[in-house]
Write a protein that binds this DNA or RNA. Structure first.
Lengths: 337, 337
DNA sequence: TTGTACGCGTTATCAA
DNA sequence: TTGATAACGCGTACAA
């Protein structure tokens, strides 16, 4: 049996109330008795029981992270930022990895009731209106990252602008046949990261007076395999693109693999540009649209903590910007040379 | 205020004891009253409070993972295995990321007292004898992964054999000047993954009657930068190795980068072999020694759960094996052609 | 089979 | 300033 506040009280010859006051350094306690209590605490090596504490305080000191975890590097980098912030704030991070839609919905409905966490960070998962309203009704603070809900604080990057930068860059290099590999879209279309990238593409195309060619747009999984397959499809058509913009770096890596397999030289015959800015992109010298992933993680925690401490704060939308990074997979279009 | 067991009891017209029995499906409850209670639970959408529950049961349903998290892919892949297993067993995973030695020791001493987790998974971190004994005295189940302690259940891969495989393979290809890039060693030397890889190297060298050349062994960080710098040092010497064995894939990737920068062709002029078998190695066609990382994660959880349910089980040592994967960064030594 | 009362380890209230 | 006592929400002996 672990030592409790009662043991300390007995040893120090005081009531448990006094011990509690010492622990929570309340002001109204005689310096002398405080000494006695502190001595007893030290002697018994007493640590308050966090469970009993949160029984009363309704605070657990931990925050939950829901995400389709290990399917994308993006999450890992965001999670890394969360890690740093949570250690700094002395909060525990509890992982809720979702693999299926059923599980996602189970978490959406159970996590708020359960109260095992003081707040919830939701990554790249968009709760429907019912669930979103459920969160606010249950009074559990939530911050959405890379997802948007009008009733929840959302942290998004300007994906339209990011995609626009990428495609505009390609156009300026003389590319006229630009293919787009999108990631699978779930949830609502408004403010959907994947969809926004498509919109950005359209805008850049429109500005340049270029036509959108439907056969140059394909949607696949957010994975190397997805990118590989998509590139194979795109590059096997009679009419080939001279550039491919992928909605994620990992898909772009798949494109690079396919290009190598088909003996298509990058960037001489094909320009490739990714999205995210994961470490791998630097390694492979892949041009990309960099998202501030770590910062997103840290910022999300900070926003969440604010809402845990001030539950009355209204939901807000935070937009972050991307940075185009040109490396060695983009070059002038063959025809422009 | 959330609905409690009392509300349910009132609505169902029974005592709270009965409600509790229904929740925990105790046998001694009249089917009819069970129905009534279940109806009330459904009507009120009642969920038992996990905090109050664990107050009594002394179980939190969550398990902690201590690791130097996001510094190596290795951890991420192991963590992925843990994720899968913990979801299956309906346990929460709590992250304790350690960045500094001070923090590691703080966790070592505080986590067992705190009892916020039912058990602890410790990755690539070796608690000293004092801490290790502390764990067993406090009665908190612990499983060490990629680390060893005589008093704690440890899950290790046979790193000596793994390194032996790698170096033997190089020797068979005619290499006589094999360099070794080790990762920084912490903790005890016995059963230390990094040190074991060095031992395996020695053994293979010895079997072949080859001398160990101290200037061909360098120790650096477990990172690309580390590998890069080490390779630069190794390849700038007058006497150059024809093969480099790195203690981790990520360091081997750094070697590849340096080789490219120095215009040294791999594998024609230099063979490179890594360790771990991270996804990146496949992508770069890097030869490597594959560890069963995901399996390690899953297995660690299973072992931990056993010890949570049967605390009397003695500590044990579980050894896993590696697999040599030859890809395109290893070839015959220049002199053997 | 069922209800009551107690205990888990704290914090908060209130009287002293 | 301090101590006793009542919550917090639940599981479980024990009595009925």
């Amino acid at each position: 049996m672990a030592t409790t506040i009662h043991d300390v009280a007995r040893v120090a010859g005081v009531g448990i109330g006094t011990v509690s006051r010492v622990i929570n350094n309340s002001v109204n306690v005689n310096p002398l008795t405080r000494e006695r209590v502190l001595a007893a605490i030290a002697q018994l090596d007493y640590k308050p029981n966090p469970i009993a504490r949160s029984m009363i305080s309704k605070r657990t000191g931990s925050i939950g992270v829901m995400a389709p975890f290990f399917t994308r590097f993006f999450f890992i980098e965001v999670l890394q930022g969360m890690e740093m912030a949570s250690v700094r704030l002395d909060k525990d991070l509890v992982l809720y990895s979702v693999d299926t839609n059923a599980q996602r919905d189970r978490y959406f409905s159970e996590l708020p009731m359960q109260r095992k966490v003081d707040g919830l960070l939701i990554l790249s998962l968009t709760p429907g209106a019912a669930f979103a309203n459920g969160f606010v009704e249950k009074g559990i603070p939530v911050v959405l990252v890379d997802a948007y809900s009008p009733v929840l604080t959302s942290l998004v990057v300007n994906n339209i602008e990011g995609a626009h930068q990428a495609v505009k860059c390609l156009i300026e290099k003389g590319h006229r046949h630009i293919a787009f590999i999108n990631g699978i879209i779930e949830g609502n279309f408004k403010f959907n990261p994947a969809n926004d990238r498509l919109i950005g593409l359209h805008r850049a195309l429109g500005e340049a007076g270029l036509l959108f060619e439907p056969e140059f747009a394909v949607t696949t999984e957010w994975s190397r395999q997805g990118g590989k397959a998509a590139a194979l499809q795109l590059l096997s058509q009679k009419k080939r693109p001279t550039a491919i913009f992928a909605a994620s770096d990992i898909q772009a890596v798949g494109v690079l693999e396919t290009a190598r397999a088909l003996n298509i030289s990058v960037p001489a015959d094909l320009s490739v540009i990714g999205y995210d800015g994961i470490e791998l992109s630097e390694l492979l010298d892949l041009s990309t649209v960099q998202q501030p992933m770590q910062y997103m993680g840290e910022r999300a925690i900070e926003e969440l903590m604010q809402r845990i401490e001030h539950p009355e704060l209204p939901a807000r939308l935070i937009r972050l910007n991307t940075t185009l990074i040109e490396r060695r997979t983009t070059a002038l279009a063959p025809s422009s040379r």
